[in-house]
Amino acid sequence: MSVASLARGAHGELDQLYIETRELRLQGFLLFLVSDCVLFSSFIFAYLYLRNSGQGWPPPGIQRLDVAFAAWNSVVLFGSGATMHYALENFKHGKWMAYMWFLLATIVLGAGFLGGQAYEYNHLIYAEHVTWWGSGIFGASFFTLTGMHGMHVFFGVCYLTVLVLQSSAGVYTRGKYFGITAGTLYWHFVDVIWVVLFSIFYLL
């Protein structure tokens, strides 16, 4: 039974079918996050493997990463996770304006994190001359992993923006808001990946 074809059913049936297919979509989405998690894990494995391949870390000629700025930037991203959580909570309780404000705050904080990362890349590339391709395994693992994460954040910001537009157009109702749940799950996932990346790149 296609979710798409069910959504085209008559109006009275829609909510019942939504409840039935919601569980399928939720599980599918969670499994997608699991496989995405494996993608990150593989690159994290590659990073740890290369890091321990015997040249010391950071490799000769490269300075340690700046923890202070990264800590601040991480808190920005983690804060966006908290605001997203409250956006969903408020939506569940029907507090429309609070939902919108928390959602917008999430977008701003997410974009702020991306800006911070752009600043950090800029600093690394132009001040310390560390590049993706020119700095050996350090550049390879750092820019690949953080860049992949940054892409996820970027897609997340785009998705949340779509959520704002959809919500204004009245797509989601109090009984039918899987899109917001999926957005929250995805955003939390992106945050949690950053917890790991922050720990292994800056603290380890």
């Binding site: 990463l65 800590a71 808190v75 959580h85």
Partner: peptide, 28 residues
């Protein structure tokens, strides 16, 4: 899932806080 995520999120914030206090990680 949300509970797990919130737990990890809180731990992440604590880690960042400790990094800010220079308790974990290396001083640049």
């Amino acid at each position: 899932v949300f509970k797990l995520m919130l737990l990890l999120l809180g731990l992440g914030a604590v880690l960042a806080l400790l990094a800010g206090l220079n308790v974990v990680g290396f001083a640049p």
